[in-house]
């Protein structure tokens, strides 16, 4: 079974040379730490920077330079700043190659819910609805089950949706799965996790072919 860094490490292998990538808050943010150093990748933050760098050293924080999580950041050489409409032109116009975000629930048809729990305080969707409605390549990073132990990979989402038919791939602490017309296709198992364990933790329909390989991290 993987921890959050393990999930991020596995997702980092999906980041290819020449990609512009938008990382959501939480586990997705960790992905930046594991991207190969020999490839060229730029991170976009939807509040208006392309070419986002690491957190600044103490004393070098700039109130005018933050990411979408409102954290102080730095800009790498070649970075650019832009307004919010242009930022979402990059996203909606499918110029961003890969979107990695967290979720509360994913359904076997690719629906995603990650912004609202009825009866609980709603903070808002931020840019999530724009990202999931537009991106061609969406990977969800999340734990396979919630804190109560219930599956987060469902036949249908029970929570209010963020987007429909949009998730392509899911990386959890247990497995890598792809959304297909037949349901969740199990591609890889986390180290030491059996297919049965994954099936048990998945409410939605799972399909797989032959021996499911273990992830290489």
């Amino acid at each position: 079974m993987l921890d959050k860094n393990g999930i991020a490490k596995r997702i980092a292998k999906e980041v290819k040379n020449g990609y512009y990538v938008n990382l959501g808050i939480g586990i997705p943010t960790l992905v930046a730490n594991f991207v190969r150093e020999d490839i060229e990748v730029e991170f976009q933050s939807e509040n208006g920077i392309l070419g986002m760098g690491p957190f600044p050293f103490e004393g070098e924080e700039d109130a005018d330079l933050i990411n979408a999580g409102k954290q102080t950041i730095t800009a790498l050489d070649g970075a650019s700043y832009f307004d919010s409409a242009m930022s979402f032109s990059m996203i909606r116009g499918q110029h961003v190659d890969l979107t990695i975000l967290g979720a509360m629930e994913v359904a076997e048809n690719g629906d995603i819910a990650n912004w609202k729990i009825p009866g609980r305080l709603v903070k808002g969707m931020g840019g999530a609805m724009d990202l999931v409605a537009s991106a061609d390549n969406i990977i969800v990073a999340m734990m396979h089950t919630n804190k109560k132990g219930d599956s987060k990979l469902l036949k249908r989402c029970s929570l209010p949706l963020t987007g429909v038919n949009c998730v392509k791939k899911i990386v959890t602490n247990l497995a890598v799965l792809e959304v297909t017309n037949e349901g969740f296709k199990l591609l890889e198992r986390a180290p030491g996790v059996s297919v049965d364990t994954i099936l048990e933790a998945t409410e939605g329909h799972v399909v797989f072919e032959g021996d499911v390989p273990e992830m290489k991290l």
Binding site: A85, I91, G127, A128, D130
Partner: peptide, 9 residues
């Protein structure tokens, strides 16, 4: 509450 990109646009 509305999507961020929708707000901008």
């Amino acid at each position: 509450l509305i999507p961020q990109g929708t707000l901008a646009e």
